[in-house]
Computed example of a mutant assay.
Amino acid sequence: MKRDINIFEFPLNLGLKKKEHETEPGVRKLPDWLRKFDFHKKINPQHIFRLEAPDYSMEIDQESGVLNAVRIIEYAKEQADFISKNHAEDSFNIMLGGDCSILIGAALALKKLGNFGLFYLDGHTDFIPVSLSETAAAAGLDLAIITGMGHEKLTNIQGLKPYFLEENIFCVGNAETDDEEYVAQIINSDIQYFDLYELRKNGFGKTAEDFLKLVNNKALDGFFIHLDVDVLKDELMPAVDSRMEDGIDYKNLREMLKPLIHSPLCFGIQITVLDPDYDENGTYTKPFVKNLIQLIKNKED
Results as ranks from 00 to 15, higher is better:
3 R>V: 08
12 L>N: 06
15 G>L: 12
18 K>Q: 09
29 K>F: 07
29 K>A: 08
33 W>C: 05
33 W>Q: 02
35 R>N: 15
35 R>G: 12
38 D>K: 15
50 R>N: 13
55 D>Q: 15
56 Y>D: 08
56 Y>G: 09
58 M>G: 10
58 M>A: 14
60 I>W: 00
61 D>C: 00
65 G>L: 01
67 L>F: 01
70 V>Q: 13
71 R>Y: 07
72 I>E: 00
75 Y>W: 13
76 A>P: 06
79 Q>N: 05
85 K>H: 09
94 I>V: 14
95 M>E: 02
99 D>F: 09
101 S>F: 04
105 G>Y: 02
108 L>F: 13
113 L>N: 09
114 G>M: 06
118 L>N: 01
128 I>M: 09
130 V>H: 05
133 S>M: 08
140 G>K: 11
146 I>L: 07
154 L>C: 12
158 Q>E: 15
161 K>I: 06
162 P>M: 04
164 F>E: 09
165 L>F: 10
170 F>K: 05
171 C>A: 15
176 E>C: 06
177 T>Q: 04
185 Q>P: 12
188 N>D: 14
195 D>L: 04
198 E>C: 06
208 A>N: 05
213 K>C: 12
216 N>K: 15
218 K>G: 04
220 L>W: 10
222 G>Y: 13
225 I>M: 11
231 V>M: 04
231 V>K: 10
234 D>A: 03
237 M>Q: 08
238 P>V: 03
254 R>Y: 10
255 E>L: 15
256 M>F: 03
258 K>Q: 14
260 L>N: 05
262 H>V: 05
263 S>Q: 07
264 P>E: 12
265 L>Y: 09
266 C>H: 11
268 G>E: 11
270 Q>N: 15
272 T>P: 03
277 D>M: 12
278 Y>I: 05
279 D>A: 00
280 E>P: 01
281 N>D: 15
282 G>Y: 08
286 K>V: 14
290 K>Y: 11
293 I>K: 00
294 Q>M: 14
295 L>Q: 07
297 K>I: 04
298 N>P: 02
301 D>S: 03
